[in-house]
Design a protein around this nucleic acid. Structure first.
Length: 157
DNA sequence: GCCAACGTTGGC
DNA sequence: GCCAACGTTGGC
């Protein structure tokens, strides 16, 4: 299976790339995803060894803050079983898991966030999911060509 | 704060 | 299974 690329959104007020940098081994669980489309990707498609952009949402400006490596395949998101967690779901049980997560490790933080407005202006990124109006998926696939173009933008910072 | 986009729920 | 009502996301 060739390596695949992803973009994963987080609200930095909730969990930032600096929070990730401060985790032991700069690794954490990407938990709390409660959307079925994103769940399907976490459960079935994202694999250990893939890479993902860390995308800031709900910020001014929104944009890509850095790169993470996926360090586990998808597995049940046990935070759904905890009534005191951020996103509990009583339908989710050990025998019948509904929600999934992966483990992620920081690869690098960009010197500056690449603003969404820049992505939208960059040739070759017109079809990128995050550039679409009303794009709400918190886990989304990125084409290899798009990945390369964003890396070039990061080089030029 | 507004609102577009779209997911979820529930009546029928 | 349809669809209206409602809730959430997230850019602006």
């Amino acid at each position: 299976m060739p390596k695949r690329y992803w973009l994963m959104k987080s609200e930095p007020g909730c969990f930032s790339i600096d929070d990730l940098a401060g985790e032991p081994d700069q690794t954490t669980t990407w938990d709390g995803v409660r959307n079925f489309q994103a769940r399907n990707m976490l459960r079935d498609q994202i694999k250990k060894g893939d890479e993902a952009f860390f995308h800031n949402s709900g910020t001014n400006p929104p944009g890509i803050a850095g790169i993470m490596k996926i360090v586990s395949d998808g597995y049940p998101d046990y935070t759904a079983e905890d009534p005191t967690s951020q996103h509990p779901d009583p339908r989710h049980t050990k025998d019948n898991p509904i929600w999934y997560m992966v483990d992620v490790k920081l690869v690098r933080k960009f010197k500056e966030v690449i603003p969404l407005s820049t992505l939208k202006e960059t040739p070759g990124l017109e079809a990128m999911e995050v550039c679409r109006r009303g794009s709400r998926l918190s886990v989304q696939p990125v084409r290899p060509e798009e990945w390369e173009i964003v890396l070039e933008l990061a080089e030029r910072l």
